[in-house]
Amino acid sequence: MSAIVRSRLAATKKSRRGSEEHPWARRALIASAMVFLFVILVVPLVNVFFQALETGVMPYLRALGDANTVTAIAMTGMTALSSVALNLAFGLTASWCIAKFQFKGKALLLTLIDLPFSVSPVVAGLLYVVLFGRQGFFGPWLDAHDIHIIFALPGMILATLFVTFPFVARELIPLLESEGTEQEQAAMSLGATGWQTYWRVTLPSVKWGLLYGVMLCNARAMGEFGAVYVVSSNIAGKTETVPLRIFNLDLGLGGHVAAFAVATLLAFLALVTLALKTWLEHRQNQDLILASALPKHEH
């Protein structure tokens, strides 16, 4: 379920059971959760920076300024940008269809959208190799027309697209469903065209959820390793994304510090994502408060 809907539910429901447990039990539970999070999340994250700066600031900066690392950043930017843009277009269309209309095959479409959640990224990558590789289904035709998909940028975008497929749509469907169709019907009855209704009524009502989905999609796209590893040729300065760069640097003898230096980029990405997420949830809640202050129409 969408995190925003979840937080909305939590906000409206309030916890009615919170005070029933013994205060010590509650404290012990909270403390154990904190210790667990600290050991599993905080320590490794801080350690990334610690390892990266092990030999000082200059080696760190040199590792980040390396031409192949810069190319890897550009490659990550390109794959993330393309897959987010395509997922945005797909996610908006699919979620709108699913939330606002009844049609045959709706359940199937929903299942298909969820598929990447249950398929291992490595399998996703291999599927594309089997389809587009030289020995694959479309291989001979692609080879004859000199089109490179596997071991090139298009394959890497496809693989990223596959693993990030559900993020935008899954975020929007529950939101759009909870909105219902009354507002759209009102707009239509006042003479708005379908397009106007979508742009001025439907889309604004889910804008924070949409941004949230895009942000998660982007974070996943930039961090994806397994699927991209299978379909990339792993060539430094050509087909390396940031996660692949980290992997390959780590495999170089003595490449440990450089690998962690590049890893700090992904750690920063995680922190920025976290900050944006908090801000988005804050904005969403403000909108909710604003909306609940307005008189609600009866029907």
């Binding site: 031409a67 089109i147 090139a152």
Partner: peptide, 18 residues
């Protein structure tokens, strides 16, 4: 038509870099 890493190589990102 030739796409793939030759295509990537000619894209603006790489153009800037190289």
């Amino acid at each position: 038509m030739k796409i793939g890493y030759v295509g990537a190589f000619r894209s603006p990102w790489f153009g800037l870099l190289l």
